[in-house]
Design a protein around this nucleic acid. Structure first.
Length: 949
DNA sequence: GAGTTTGAAACT
DNA sequence: CAGTTTCAAACTC
């Protein structure tokens, strides 16, 4: 069992760490310098108002809420709302309390459950300050100390000696939540003291329904019968010092956004921003003891809870073992904050000095205040510190922005990951999230927490949080000199007719996490499928597998990775690349299935490992769709058609036999690849996790034989066999043809051109299958006779790593090579000198070309036939001839010739002549371009027909 | 989904 | 080789 819980914190994260009832984390806003406050808060920016404003929701059980209302007067509106658990009732104090300070409780003692709150008295240690003792059923006494009330909202000169408990309860489980809504101001200060040992946390229990039913009525009479079983308010408990009453002063500090920070004044002083001393980890359940063992490290177990935007502080978090403690009951969990601190001679005893990123320091005496240091905004941090004594239940932290940039991090029990195990000996480093509030359910296998930074952290099963890479890792832009499977520089210009032409560059691939159904057509009809031409469907793979959990020897990072992947070692992340949808076709877009993405080479180029390799060799596959003739970057990957056919027959006979060893090899490879950690984009992550959470049961389980997973959906016999065989040969199908007249035996047909059999196509009278092998072979011969390279890849890279080029070049005239009509553009490669295109704008960075000027000409040409008047009739035909007339060309040539003549007369070197001739040509072209631009502008500005619109 | 546009393939 | 036709995909509405 976890060590006894001395701290009085309650958990406000809804998780229900029953043993932590929050008096300890009482935050007190301090605005007035005083002996006490100076001691507590060195942040000048915080020294203004003595008002204690309890802004954070603190849930009180009904009896406590009623008692509070009684104590605080009519200005308190106590709202009782049922909590999720039937045993508790939440009470919110909604309005401000300035008008009625805490010491106006009256003289009558108040009993809350088993706790008796005596009339205000004077604390012997705080002369002049009235203390309200609260006596618990087990004999503990807690003093509620407050200072003088603030009048008229004036905050000056009123010392804030200590804080009022935002949760007037201690470790007893009965008061699980004490919510004081934002805006609640408690004028004055209070000190909460507890001088009796607390009960062991094992005695903590939830508030029963009967108990919650009592207080409301009893509070009115201040005579609530205490619960016999346990007190609502408990003093500090300590497993090691149960006989040593320790007074605990709590100071409440309100942050700018209304959050509370509780400063425990009663604990020994700790200077956090000092170099770590010998790490001493102490069970967090005994804060007093912790504070007496000062070191310099604050170690908080458990994931962080939330982090407001703009946070720039980073605590040291040790989220150890949270993922392994899922089996423990949250109700019995004991938060264990192991804080190792170092004593600061300048800090009063029982306090810690917390420094913010801005350098401001506050003295806190709460072990749960964790270290803040000047760190850029980051959402993750990791520490590795042994915590042998700590209970395994983790804590999480809430970063609280304060005034003037001062921020705090508050540690809360991590209920969902809590555990009662006390023999935890090691803590594995884990990333923790300072992002959104974590989910309270352990059942959520994965959640994404996106903090205020670019980091993405994903919480996986058991609370492990791992960072996720950025999207570029998945679809990187092509690095210079690398295999250009990715995008290239977008050409200049802004031809509106070509807008969006780059919408499907590889870098712009629409990545979607889609559930991969065994039926490939199941999601083919998605409306967006047409737009998202290249959809990477990343199916979720279940976290549970037949092979069981990862071995204990697996490093934590690898475990996390496996959690991300939702796989075990032999599992893989499967992707399907969805090809272009066919207009007017009922066919689903072809999808390629890849086992894993993100195997990157030395150049950072990512590859997809095709899972269809019948020979068991993962293939490097061009990760975009390709039109006919666009196969693989490496022509060697594409088999000659004859060889494919021969192979096809062989595969038909031995298909199954060949598949199985391929599986084994692929699994081996995937296991290796898993070490490289798949890089997934942010939206991918989120969707992946959504998929994890919602579609877990639908995902194909990789424990199934790989062949079974990857085999295509059932198709009619011959085509299916042929297609499967071709797939096994490494063919890279991407879409289904829609041929109607070519019988799929001409190069018009993409399937045929790619040397593939038609499968799942909507073609008519298709002969591109095994049933018509004779005709097919005749057609192949015919094509080869016309063009021996007909079936060779159109786009190849001369050498590995070179830029891919279209071997033949395009011949575009009207598209500017910025639409998919252009084969170069479609293949995501720039046009080259092989191209005969007109007005090409599909080019790499060409600093030697004034693209603006070229665009003018191109635009002029393109717009020539596009310019219409208001009636839609063309205003002019082919205006490009206006500029490049024969006279202009002749004049240009004559100028060049004249240069040559001059140089010959002067016997100048030929090199100079050539240079000057080219310069002359350049000048002439510039003049033509300038003239064209001017004319073009004039045309657009002067012509009323064009400017009318 | 129908019609149009586009450019490669096929043909002359 | 150039011009035309055919074809299917891309694109637009």
């Amino acid at each position: 069992m976890a060590s006894k819980q001395q701290n009085l914190d309650s958990d406000d994260n809804g998780g229900g760490c029953d043993t932590n009832l929050g008096m300890k984390r009482v935050c007190m806003e301090k605005k007035e310098p005083s002996a006490t406050t100076n001691e507590l808060l060195n942040t000048s920016g915080q020294k203004k108002a003595p008002i204690v404003r309890i802004l954070e929701n603190k849930r009180l059980t009904a009896p406590m809420g009623a008692a509070l209302k009684n104590m605080l007067g009519e200005n308190v509106r106590v709202v009782t709302t049922p909590t999720k658990t039937a045993s508790t009732t939440e009470i919110k104090i909604l309005n401000k309390l300035q008008a009625k300070p805490l010491n106006a409780f009256g003289n009558a003692p108040v009993k809350i459950g088993s706790t008796t709150i005596a009339a205000p008295t004077t604390s012997p240690k705080n002369i002049g300050v009235k203390m309200t003792p609260i006596k618990t059923a087990d004999g503990k006494v807690i003093y509620l100390q407050k200072s003088l009330p603030v009048t008229g909202g004036t905050t000056s000169k009123v010392p804030l000696a200590s804080g009022i408990s935002d949760r007037l309860a201690s470790t007893g489980s009965n008061i699980r939540h004490a919510i004081l809504s934002k805006g609640v101001n408690l004028s004055g200060t209070c000190t909460i003291k507890s001088n009796t040992p607390s009960l062991s946390s094992s005695t903590a229990r939830g508030l029963t329904a009967a108990e919650t039913a009592k207080p409301a009525a009893h509070a009115a009479t201040n005579a609530v019968t205490p619960s016999a079983s346990s007190g609502l308010i408990k003093g500090p408990s300590s497993a090691d010092a149960v006989s040593t009453p320790v007074a605990t002063k709590i100071q409440v500090v309100r942050t700018a956004d209304g959050k509370l920070i509780k400063l425990n004044q009663g604990s020994p002083s700790v200077l956090l921003n000092t170099k770590p001393a010998i790490p001493t980890t102490v069970s967090g359940s005994n804060s007093n003891k912790v504070m007496t063992k000062p070191t310099a490290q604050v170690i908080i177990k458990g994931p962080l809870k939330q982090l407001p935007a703009g946070s720039s502080l980073r605590p040291i978090i040790n989220n150890s073992g949270s993922s392994n403690n899922a089996t423990s009951s949250s109700s019995s969990a004991v938060a264990s904050t192991a804080i190792t601190t170092s004593a600061s001679p300048s800090i009063p005893g029982g306090k810690m000095l917390v420094q913010s990123s801005t350098g401001k320091q506050i003295v806190v005496a709460n072990k749960d205040i964790i270290k803040l240091w000047p760190m850029p905004s980051t959402s993750t941090t990791t520490t590795t510190t042994a915590n042998p004594n700590a209970a395994s239940s983790g804590l999480h932290a809430i970063q609280l922005p304060g005034k003037s940039g001062l921020q705090y991090v508050r540690v809360l029990p991590n209920n969902s990951n809590s555990s009662s195990a006390s023999n935890e000996t090691t803590t594995s480093p884990q990333k923790v999230s300072l992002g959104r509030p974590r989910t309270t359910s352990n059942n959520t296998s994965s959640t994404v927490s996106v903090g205020n930074t670019t980091k993405i952290v994903m919480k996986t099963t058991g609370g492990s949080i791992v960072p996720l890479p950025s999207m570029q890792t998945l679809v990187p832009r092509r690095a210079p000199g690398t295999t250009p499977n990715t995008a290239y520089t977008k050409p200049l210009g802004n031809n509106s007719s070509l807008d969006g032409a780059h919408k499907h560059r590889v870098s712009d691939v629409n990545v979607q996490i889609k559930h991969l159904s065994s039926d490939s057509a199941s999601d083919a009809g998605a409306p967006e499928a047409k737009k998202a031409r290249y959809v990477i469907a990343m199916p979720h793979t279940p976290t549970t597998s037949a092979t069981g959990p990862a071995p204990a020897t697996v490093p934590a990072s690898q475990k996390n990775m496996q959690k991300i992947m939702g796989t075990r070692a032999t599992q893989m992340q499967r992707f399907t690349v969805q090809g272009a949808n066919m207009t007017g076709s009922n066919n689903p877009p072809t999808r390629k299935i890849y086992n894993l993405v993100t195997k990157s080479d030395a150049n950072g180029v990512k590859y997809m490992i095709c899972n269809k390799g019948g020979e068991g060799k993962p293939r490097t596959v061009f990760n975009t769709t390709m039109r006919r003739g666009y196969t693989l970057a490496d022509s060697k990957l594409r088999r000659p058609l004859a060889a494919q056919q021969a192979r096809l027959k062989q595969m038909k006979q031995h298909q199954h036999r060949l598949m199985l060893p391929a599986q084994a090899k692929q699994r081996q490879q995937l296991q290796q690849l898993q070490k490289h950690q798949t890089t997934i984009t942010k939206p991918q992550q989120q969707q992946t996790l959504k998929s994890t959470a919602t579609q877990e049961t639908k995902i194909a389980i990789p424990s199934k034989p790989l062949f079974d997973i990857l085999k295509p959906p059932p198709v009619p016999a011959p085509a299916a066999g042929a297609a499967a065989a071709l797939d096994a040969l490494g063919g890279s199908r991407r879409k289904h043809c829609n041929c109607s007249k070519s019988q799929c035996l001409k190069l018009y047909c993409d399937c045929f051109a790619n040397g593939e059999f038609c499968q799942d196509c909507t073609c008519k009278d298709c002969f591109n299958n095994l049933d018509y092998e004779v005709k097919r072979e005749e057609a192949i011969r015919s094509c080869l006779e016309r063009n021996p390279s007909a079936f060779k890849p159109k786009i190849t890279a001369p050498n590995s790593g070179d830029i891919r080029l279209h071997n033949k070049g395009c011949n575009c005239k009207r598209s500017g090579c910025l639409k998919n009509y252009c084969e170069c553009y479609e293949a995501k490669i720039p046009c080259s000198t092989m191209c005969k295109c007109v007005g090409c704008r599909n080019m790499e960075d060409r600093p030697d070309v004034d693209m603006d000027s070229m665009d003018s000409l191109v635009d002029a040409k393109l717009q020539t036939n596009k310019v219409k008047d208001l009636n839609g009739t063309y205003l002019q035909e082919n205006r490009s001839n206006v500029y490049l007339t024969d006279d202009v060309i002749e004049a240009t040539i004559m100028c060049m010739i004249s240069r040559i003549v001059m140089h010959e007369k002067q016997n100048l070197p030929v090199e100079d002549t050539e240079r000057e001739v080219m310069e002359e040509l350049g000048e002439s072209l510039n003049q033509i371009i300038t003239f064209a631009k001017e004319k073009n502008d004039t045309f657009h500005t002067d012509d009323p027909k064009t400017t009318a619109a």
